[in-house]
Computed example of a mutant assay.
Amino acid sequence: MSSLSILARGERLRERLLTDVATDLRITGFQSPAEDEREEGLSLDRLTGLGAPHVWGVQVLDDSLIGFGIFRGDRLIVNRAASHLDNKLVVVDLDDGYRVRLVQRDLFGGRWLKAADPIVPDVQLDGEEIIEVWGVVSWVVSCVSS
């Protein structure tokens, strides 16, 4: 009585090649010890959370973030559900559009938005003017070669 096993295409080809070379080879259900050390492929989607409804990708269009080590063409992965802001880069809605700023506390506990360029004045985050924090930058993805 014969038994059948339906295999994926790659497994079927590998089995055919092995049986052509070694007709007496018996394929068992035990995996190779090398499989214990095998690593899964790196998935940027899983690593950064892309695809979740609260995680957005943003592309940098100018050189205004060089002071933060972020360059034109870099991608920012922004978490819109993050709530911890201290010492984080955030995307905020200022009068002239969305900008990236660093949130830092002063000696009295107030939060300030600092720009990458020290010439740009700081803005108080928890002051009288309401400033919308659109999200927290959780990753910077840079292209290092083309």
Rank of each mutant, 00 (worst) to 15 (best):
S5Y: 02
I6R: 05
L7I: 01
L7W: 05
A8D: 08
R12H: 13
L17G: 10
A22M: 14
T23F: 15
T23R: 15
T23I: 13
L25D: 04
L25K: 14
R26V: 14
I27W: 03
P33V: 11
P33K: 11
A34D: 06
A34E: 03
E35Q: 10
E37H: 10
R38Q: 08
E40T: 09
L42R: 15
S43H: 12
D45S: 15
R46A: 15
L47V: 12
V58D: 05
D62E: 00
D62A: 01
D62F: 06
D62V: 04
D63S: 02
D63E: 13
S64L: 05
G69C: 03
I70L: 02
F71H: 13
R72H: 00
L76A: 05
L76V: 03
V78R: 12
V78Y: 13
N79C: 14
H84C: 13
H84Q: 10
L85I: 00
D86K: 11
K88V: 02
K88Y: 03
D96P: 03
D96C: 10
Y98R: 06
R99D: 02
V100F: 04
R105C: 00
R105L: 00
L107Y: 02
F108D: 07
G109E: 01
G109K: 01
G110P: 06
K114M: 08
A115M: 12
A116W: 09
D117A: 14
D117E: 09
P118C: 07
P118G: 05
I119N: 08
Q124T: 01
L125P: 02
G127F: 09
G127A: 07
E128N: 00
G135E: 05
V136T: 07
V136W: 00
V137A: 01
W139K: 09
V141H: 03
S146D: 14
